[in-house]
Write a protein that binds this DNA or RNA. Structure first.
Lengths: 133, 133
DNA sequence: GTTTCCCTTTACGTAAACGTCAAGCAAATT
DNA sequence: AATTTGCTTGACGTTTACGTAAAGGGAAAC
């Protein structure tokens, strides 16, 4: 009776997330997503959607697919032994450092954009005749 | 005595700006810089330095070389040419949107890292299989 | 039963931004 | 003169993230 777990086809996923079939199959090749196979067809479950979401966000953040895979792999680690947990914590810490560095660069870039835009608008407004560097 | 206009060699420029010779020649191929040629050698004038500076800043801001080319070309054109300024402002606005999306993604990711870490620590405390200090 | 779709795999192609030889000129030094 | 040093021009190689075409399966529609 219930949609205990809806599933999606590759076309639906591609449309919804704004990527092509090729992209999705490529991500599967890279081990970023692992949709179920019914015969030869791919069946996408909610967890595949979550992972794809993470992948796309990682891309927007400017990570390459290798790094993205390491990131998404962190999310469904089996709660394992203490050693593994410590290792995971280490990687989380490292990733956080990276992200915070990135955030810093981002702020710098936005500030520089503001500055360029400011000068640009000054040029546009200030009856420009000649300019010095 | 009259350093009325100092010039630089490709090696000096490369060292100073932290790029390789290959990069500089590539930028020349792309029409981003046009150093003087004395015989077969390249002679860099202050204006080449200015343009290279613009190129590198554009790269830091995340523009591709095609966009950068349009931007640095503005440098030689009648200052304040309305169309060109508008183009630059458009690119800046678009880039800012991307960066702000990125900042949002960053916050989400950092928050999720916190969450993963929290669960991870709960696991470590709740089901300790081995102890280590 | 055949056409129509959607999906599949395999495989080669592409673009950006250089890297990396290879081979050679030209001035400076020995 | 010979060597070294710095610069030059091709020209092919590299990586990432897919695009694109070829060839075909399986089921649903006609």
């Amino acid at each position: 009776m219930s949609d205990i777990e809806r599933t999606w086809t590759i076309a639906e996923i591609a449309l919804e997330f704004g990527v092509t079939h090729r992209t999705i199959r490529f991500y599967e090749d890279q081990g970023l997503i692992t949709p179920e196979r019914r015969g030869t067809q791919r069946i996408f479950h909610p967890r595949d959607r979550v992972r794809l979401e993470l992948v796309l966000r990682g891309k927007r953040l400017g990570f390459d697919l290798g790094q993205i895979r390491r990131i998404v792999d962190m999310y469904d680690q089996p709660p394992g032994e203490a050693g593994q947990l410590r290792y995971l914590l280490e990687r989380i810490a490292a990733r956080r450092l990276e992200l915070e560095q990135r955030r810093h660069d981002l702020e710098l870039t936005l500030a520089e954009l503001d500055e360029v835009e400011r000068r640009c608008r000054a040029d546009a407004a200030g009856a420009p005749k000649s300019r010095r560097s």
